[in-house]
Design a protein around this nucleic acid. Sequence first.
DNA 1: TCTGGTAAAGTGGTCAGGCCAATTCCGTCG
DNA 2: CGACGGAATTGGCCTGACCACTTTACCAGA
Lengths: 246, 246
Amino acid sequence: MPLQAVESRRLYRQIADQIAELIDKGEYRAGSRLPPERDLAKQLGVSRPSVREALIALEVGGYVEVRVGSGVYVTGKRPVPAAAALPEDSGPFELIRARWMIEGECAALAAKNATKAQVKAIEEALDAMVRDKGDNPMPLDNDRLFHLRIAEASGNSALALVVQTLWDQRLGPLFLRLEHHFDTPGLWELAIREHREVVQAIIKKNPTAARTAMRRHMDQAAKRFSASWSQSRRRGDERGAGTRTG
Amino acid sequence: MPLQAVESRRLYRQIADQIAELIDKGEYRAGSRLPPERDLAKQLGVSRPSVREALIALEVGGYVEVRVGSGVYVTGKRPVPAAAALPEDSGPFELIRARWMIEGECAALAAKNATKAQVKAIEEALDAMVRDKGDNPMPLDNDRLFHLRIAEASGNSALALVVQTLWDQRLGPLFLRLEHHFDTPGLWELAIREHREVVQAIIKKNPTAARTAMRRHMDQAAKRFSASWSQSRRRGDERGAGTRTG
DNA sequence: TCTGGTAAAGTGGTCAGGCCAATTCCGTCG
DNA sequence: CGACGGAATTGGCCTGACCACTTTACCAGA
């Protein structure tokens, strides 16, 4: 009975993690076959449907390949542990704080290193944001694009990757509930103005100003978020560790 | 009978595609609830387990969110950029440079915020590294663990996520070739010494020293990497943008 | 009337057992 | 020795059931 009742995560996830761990540990090597579903079920003390669900999760995750009538095989190609995610209990402010730090440096580096083409790409993203600020989901996409292009202009693709990863966290279930609070037209207007300041600092090749402008943008974003946050979550007790400014 | 026998793909994939299509077509909007599993099963002419498998596939794909006792909800967020990866042409130095910046701050924050338990966890990782420095794949795992725990001790889970993401990039094809160059026992000894300095600064709650120690560790890592890099790649032309110091 | 709690309905989570279809394995026959 | 064919293995899918959690509706009490 390796599985606890208290475990709140759904069973198929526990099983999938367990199997994935065995694979990582080298228990089952790439190309080798996993035990039959029935055996796994018995071995783990769960039912076959649960094992099947776990295997499907692993399959869409690319960990294993299922061949009918033959068995389940380990693919071995672990294409970068499919996008780690933020823990459930972490508030959005930690995320914004991380972006404050990282994107501030990105802006500074971009001011130093950006090519003309990259500057143009950044301006285009900003223009698109201005143009689509009425439409519902669009400004957010363009907002993302703007920040991504600045990160790319830093000349460090690892930083660009990080910015992308952090931005993608907004797709998590936690943030979905909040995003529609942002649709107030006035708020987009403010965000655009802050963006413009960042762009101007980059054009002037002034790293310090670019960093300051980006950090200010993040501070304002935190404030805007804060309003809808406390509004939609009354039992709030965010620890805010690492959230405080510096 | 909407489903054909000739269809060779597995049933849960067909169902998942069908539901995803309905979502894309706007049949079910973001945030709205899907019909109950039982209804979907009847409506599509399949059994509930098959519907469940499809929903799990959609869930790990990020299309929907399942809330027990309540229902299945559309997240509305499509692509799930599933683990962005570093571009092929980016050298390892960009990655190290990004870590220089981010993990330096993590160390500083950890020196400020770490709990006793977190400090202990960091020390344990270091001890494990000392203990396993002979074994082949182990020190790298413990190295990863060490850096991860410092990031966690920063109190900002978004930063921890970033560190994890960057570290996972080492699994990419580019880096696998190089890692075995690190197996020289003397190099691990140096790395451990650098780690120890970071730990001591954290224990002393000295953020500045912690940041400096971590950055020095990264600089040294870059140097070590540099040796095996130029050695295994003669046609070198790394642009090194963003790699230069600061 | 309003408020509070409790019962009931709704919904996902999991299990058991079964049958079918594809694949694989192995012994037999040519 | 090789080709054939049947049995065993294994995944695919189904029926039906029971449980736990959430949401809703209703009724008693203030």
